[in-house]
């Protein structure tokens, strides 16, 4: 076996572990962001409304449903079921969030993105840090990308069902 082959074998063995880290990390992101919002759905609705992208009635529904969806995606990733599909759904949500932040930024709104909080308008001289918010979400998107590419991971329901060790 030459050196190149050896390296590629090692990488093949490492991928399930890398994917496991990505899966659990992304699960934590969704569970935490959903958990922080679920305690006050009215506030979550107001955070969605602050983006000024939909009517108040629609924002209220989105604000109520979104935290539960985030928690559901977090749980699905945590147990590792249909990992590729779950990661794809997570990626779609992240792309929507990034789009929302870019649109708020482009329109010059001064709002808290409500990513890990209930958001709302910024007051008292706090300034929006859209660049950082987007960068962070892109980081999460990379985790989802790893799972889309290499969905096999350790300690997952998928692995269990397929009889992998």
């Amino acid at each position: 076996m030459d050196l190149k082959q050896q390296q590629s074998t090692r990488l093949t063995a490492a991928w399930p572990w890398i994917s496991t880290l990505a899966r659990l990390g992304l699960a934590a992101v969704f569970l935490i962001s959903g958990g922080l919002k679920v305690t006050d759905l009215a506030a979550s609705g107001r955070a969605v409304n602050a983006y000024d992208l939909m009517s108040w009635e629609t924002a209220k529904v989105v604000g109520a449903v979104q935290p539960f969806l985030e928690i559901a995606v977090g749980l699905l990733l945590l147990i590792g079921i249909a990992t590729r599909l779950s990661a794809a759904i997570a990626a779609v949500l992240l792309v929507i969030f990034i789009g929302g932040i870019i649109s708020a930024w482009a329109r010059g709104l001064q709002i808290d993105c409500g990513c890990f909080s209930k958001g709302g308008e910024l007051t008292g001289g706090r300034t929006a840090e859209y660049g950082l918010d987007i960068l962070r979400d892109v980081g999460f998107l990379v985790l989802a990308g790893i799972l889309l590419w290499k969905p096999r991971s350790k300690f997952s329901v998928d692995g269990l069902l397929l009889g992998e060790r």
């Binding site: 759905l41 109520a64 449903v65 979104q66 935290p67 969806l69 928690i71």
Partner: peptide, 11 residues
């Protein structure tokens, strides 16, 4: 679907 339904119901 269930998660979305819960959110809808709570609202």
């Amino acid at each position: 679907v269930i998660a979305g339904g819960i959110g809808w119901g709570v609202l």
